[in-house]
Design a protein around this nucleic acid. Structure first.
Length: 334
DNA sequence: GGCCCTCTTTAGGGCCTT
């Protein structure tokens, strides 16, 4: 299996002053994405193209179609029609999505697409032709996986290109008790047009599928994903009778940060919180703190640094992934 | 809740996520 080294260029990531390698993470991702695509019909008006972002978000390519129409519908299955559009006063969120989704068909499609990912990785000599790396973050009503609800979600495809980001508030159907943390108020999430989770999940599935390469799989990356983000996603999906697709793999950057810390490098702080890592790597905060997309952008850059410090190739990252079903019983996965 | 560390493993405390 050929490994694609994740080394980064200071030219590609000017904010990261200590990068010296000539090979760029972003360049690798662009190479692995450029052969996939035709027109994308996904209507996500709020998805930003990061043309001006330092570090190589600027290149464009066209994705394969992401039709929301599923074939072979049954008359007995519930048919949902959703027309969602919302804007948030702070100007950071603007999403307009039309979805015509059949929930049972989605799960059916996911099952059909299921395959032995590990076997596919072993058989495929070029991992980069299979993988889509998506950094994501959620804001919630609290820490409780049982009682808490997701109120914001943001996703960034590290491959860049059109519609490389996905961001929306979510109506949790309850009050938001911790607005002092993220600034997201009950008023903000209960305004007309803010989707509920059962409305958002089909859209999210559609978006991720639109980023997925043919016969490929996605790696969703978050900080403390194993014990926070993924359990939250699991609970929200199951609460609304959805399943997290089996070809979604997850990567937790918290163990990476701890591993880097164990190496004893002075560049890694004793603390491994997102804020501590951001300050350590001198990554400026863009946007309000504790908002999903701000943290996603910070984590995307932190990930570069961690993989650089740990000298992790893509295959090394894939080895550290886990499935959503593993997050509730992590002893099974390693 | 899970992971990691240590004045540990028959345990306990701190960190990480909002």
């Amino acid at each position: 299996m050929r490994s694609v080294a994740m080394c980064f260029s200071i030219l590609q990531a000017p904010r990261c002053r200590h990068f010296t390698s000539a090979t760029s993470w972003w360049e690798s991702f662009h190479k692995l994405n450029k052969n996939h695509g035709c027109g994308s019909s996904f209507k996500l008006l709020g998805s930003n193209t990061y043309d001006g972002h330092e570090g190589g978000y600027s290149r464009r390519w066209i994705r394969r179609p992401a039709s929301t129409e599923a074939e072979g519908r049954s008359k007995n299955t519930l048919r949902r029609k959703t027309n969602i559009s919302h804007k948030v006063s702070d100007g950071t969120i603007s999403t307009s999505t039309k979805v015509d989704i059949n929930k049972s068909e989605i799960n059916k499609i996911e099952r059909i697409q299921y395959c032995d990912i590990q076997q596919k990785i072993a058989e495929n000599k070029d991992l980069s032709s299979l993988i889509t790396f998506l950094v994501f973050d959620i804001e919630t009503t609290g820490f409780s996986r049982v009682d808490g609800r997701i109120i914001e979600i943001a996703v960034r495809d590290l491959g860049g290109g059109e519609n490389s980001t996905f961001q929306t508030l979510v109506n949790p159907g309850c009050i938001v008790p911790n607005s002092h943390i993220h600034g997201i108020s009950t008023y903000m999430v209960t305004r007309p047009g803010i989707p509920r989770m059962d409305e958002l999940i089909p859209i999210l599935l559609q978006y991720v599928r639109s980023r997925q390469k043919p016969s490929g799989f996605v790696v969703l990356i978050a900080h403390n994903a194993r014990t926070f983000d993924v359990p939250f996603l699991n609970n929200e999906f199951s609460r609304h009778s959805f399943e997290v697709p089996s070809d979604w793999l997850f990567l937790d950057t918290l163990p990476l940060a701890r591993e880097a810390m164990k190496l004893g490098g002075s560049k890694v702080p004793a603390k491994t919180s997102l804020q501590a890592l951001r300050e350590c790597y001198e990554i400026p905060l863009v946007g309000p703190a504790h908002r999903a997309m701000s943290d996603v952008d910070a984590l995307a850059l932190i990930l570069q640094r961690l993989t650089f410090d740990l000298k992790l190739p893509i295959s090394g990252l894939v080895e550290k992934t886990f499935r959503a079903s593993d997050s509730s019983n992590p002893k099974k996965k390693k």
